[in-house]
Design a protein around this nucleic acid. Structure first.
Lengths: 210, 210
DNA sequence: TTATTATCCGAGTCATCGCTCAGTTTTTGT
DNA sequence: ACAAAAACTGAGCGATGACTCGGATAATAA
């Protein structure tokens, strides 16, 4: 584990697969990694074992991935994209209250429908290169939501920093749902949790009338 | 990484140190582990490296720890205890609003005063044996806070399940502060974050008058 | 067809890691 | 002072893991 001169590409694909069979190879590796992560553990997921489970040779694996870390970085990247898509998918809400409801329900929905993998990624895989894709879910969503709330300011209680509040609320939702996923998954899908969270956020964000 | 017959003591001390120098050895190992974790990484923290940094022989390390995982489990256990102490320390609040303020400020205080180690433990160390100590911070605190809130019911908005709400609020605080610690530490100590969080919680929990 | 590029293969190398054990030193108890 | 218990030592073993490389095979292009 020598780090000669901090290579950025340590967590990226060595090269893009061009042919279809190559894309299939990459996908097989990622699927195998996910499966081993969920059924065994991160430390059991050696490159040799992953390659074997994927049905590709260890040599092929290293054609595309510079190492074990890159495999899981890519896996997380792709899950992050799915997560983002899940949250931003239709229908677009037409008012702040619907926005909060949509945010909470979609978030719970995504996490609980991928619970095993989500939890394993969160609890077992080290967060290399945290800055890069870690924010994928929030990076685009926050400014977008902020703009939305700005245009519906009249429905909100007076806040002197809407941008900050927007980010805070996003983080409260993601972090709290994450916490339930890891530590109390039996409540994750409960009406009670979803409704309480929405109520908590609404009461803070919105004025009485809304 | 063979797991013959799921031994429970994999994450516990092999034996309790009886003499002072033995306690010093254990402490030195834990300190070294923490230091390497923070300055290098979890995967760089091999038992050999930890022993060397601690200034004890590898043999001595294995007198007390059954393996690498046990070292970090113990480290986390001790940090968890500190965390709990930090949150439950005087002065005991006399009303719900003070309770919320106390909870938020103490929590932020603890996390930000141990930020590097806290973040490293959260992001790099796998959560083995999650059930055991993971809940240390909440396990005692939640029922205790729940009882407290029950006795001050008249200051609260009507809630049909105070126990659930208590736990929810605890989780919102810990999870959100944790999220800022990992992903936006520049806001962690800000007045704005602390005050917004308290406001968010109060508005949901308390009735107008309180 | 033929040249070129892309993909795949897997035995084998080398480093490192977790861990043991036989023996020494220190502390404690009587 | 002496024995027993506790603590410490570190060379070295066995296992495994990440990764390479020389070469085979397949797809694409000219």
């Amino acid at each position: 584990m020598q780090m000669t001169h901090t290579e950025k590409q340590r967590y990226q694909l060595r090269k893009q697969p061009k042919q279809a069979r190559a894309r299939a190879t990459v996908q097989a590796v990622l699927d195998a990694a996910a499966q081993i992560l969920v059924t065994r553990s991160y430390s059991d997921a050696s490159t040799n074992v992953i390659a074997e489970r994927a049905g590709v040779s260890i040599g092929s694996l290293y054609e595309y991935f510079p190492g074990k870390e890159a495999i899981f970085a890519e896996l997380r990247r792709r899950e992050g994209i799915k997560h983002y898509r899940s949250i931003t998918r239709e229908p677009r809400p037409s008012n702040p209250r619907d926005m909060l409801r949509h945010l909470v329900t979609q978030h719970v929905q995504f996490v609980s429908s991928n619970l095993a993998l989500y939890v394993a990624l969160e609890t077992e895989v080290p967060r290399f290169a945290i800055a890069e894709q870690e924010m994928a879910v929030l990076a685009d969503y926050v400014p977008q939501s902020n703009a939305f709330l700005q245009t519906h300011r009249e429905q909100l209680r007076p806040h002197n920093n809407i941008a900050f509040i927007t980010e805070l609320l996003m983080r409260v939702v993601t972090a709290t749902v994450n916490d339930y996923a890891l530590r109390a998954p039996e409540y994750l899908r409960s009406e009670e949790l979803t409704e309480s969270l929405i109520d908590l956020l609404s009461r803070y964000l919105l004025n009485e009338a809304a």
